[in-house]
Amino acid sequence: MLGSEEMTQIFAHRGYSASFAENTMSAFIGAEKAGADGLELDVQLTRDGEIVVIHDEKVDRTTNGHGFIKDLTYKEIRKLNANKNGGKKESIPSLIEVFEWLKTNNLLCNIEMKNGLFPYEGMEEKVIELVRKYNLTDRIIFSSFNHYSIVHCYRIAPDIETAPLFLEAIYMPWVYSQSIRAKGIHPKHSTIPDHIITTTIQNGVAVRPYTVNREADLKRLFKLNCTAVITDNPIKAIKIKKTI
């Protein structure tokens, strides 16, 4: 199981998104320099079938462009600036670009399949094929709010860890996880009480809550020895972890 070590791991949510444009190479490189253990990023499919790293189904919020990823070609998407706050131009990365960079370090990588709104036919197969090509099998976790998608991932690649995402509290999440062969859960941090975290971990299921930015919430999870936290600010999380 990824991250079954004693210390709570720190995953940078969309990279070091507190200080860099989210889901950009700068945010990922910034997370590595900050000392994060892993990254969390989101994938969607372009009109011509390229896997790109962006959270929203549309490019409007995070770039200077408009429209749905599924309606734009990879070439069109690469022309957009994913750094809306000024500063240097940032392209929306392809998953290939991220994987080539991951080969230069030891970071773990949580890939969230963004296929709740649009099913993105064949996305799981494409992502898995790339994971295999870059020999990253033991460093990847697939997560999604679309649990059918991660079960599909498990069926075609049982050697790659899966972890369902939850917005609401779920009864006995370890039982549910085991039923879909997931080795972890990624719950919203405010919906999972202490005893559920510890019981889930005791039952062999990793717990990596998101998106944990407040000092009090980080302290709580570090004290519980939670498997990992997913945070926008890895530097802040590392500082707090050192005090526990």
Score class of each variant (00 low, 15 high):
residue 12 A to M: 06
residue 13 H to L: 00
residue 30 G to N: 08
residue 32 E to V: 01
residue 41 L to M: 15
residue 42 D to H: 09
residue 43 V to Y: 01
residue 46 T to V: 11
residue 52 V to K: 02
residue 53 V to E: 06
residue 54 I to P: 04
residue 54 I to L: 14
residue 56 D to M: 04
residue 57 E to D: 15
residue 58 K to L: 13
residue 66 H to A: 04
residue 71 D to G: 15
residue 74 Y to F: 15
residue 83 N to G: 01
residue 85 N to I: 02
residue 102 L to M: 05
residue 103 K to I: 01
residue 105 N to G: 07
residue 105 N to C: 10
residue 108 L to E: 03
residue 108 L to Q: 05
residue 111 I to H: 02
residue 111 I to K: 01
residue 116 G to A: 06
residue 118 F to C: 05
residue 120 Y to N: 12
residue 121 E to S: 04
residue 123 M to I: 12
residue 128 I to W: 04
residue 129 E to S: 11
residue 135 N to Q: 14
residue 136 L to D: 12
residue 137 T to S: 11
residue 139 R to Y: 08
residue 157 A to W: 14
residue 157 A to S: 11
residue 161 E to G: 02
residue 165 L to D: 07
residue 167 L to P: 00
residue 170 I to G: 02
residue 173 P to S: 05
residue 175 V to C: 08
residue 175 V to I: 15
residue 188 K to E: 15
residue 193 P to Y: 09
residue 195 H to K: 13
residue 203 N to F: 00
residue 207 V to P: 07
residue 209 P to T: 01
residue 211 T to C: 13
residue 211 T to W: 12
residue 213 N to L: 07
residue 213 N to G: 12
residue 214 R to T: 08
residue 216 A to H: 10
residue 216 A to C: 10
residue 219 K to C: 09
residue 219 K to G: 06
residue 224 L to H: 11
residue 234 P to Q: 08
residue 235 I to H: 07
residue 239 K to I: 11
residue 241 K to Q: 13
residue 244 I to C: 06
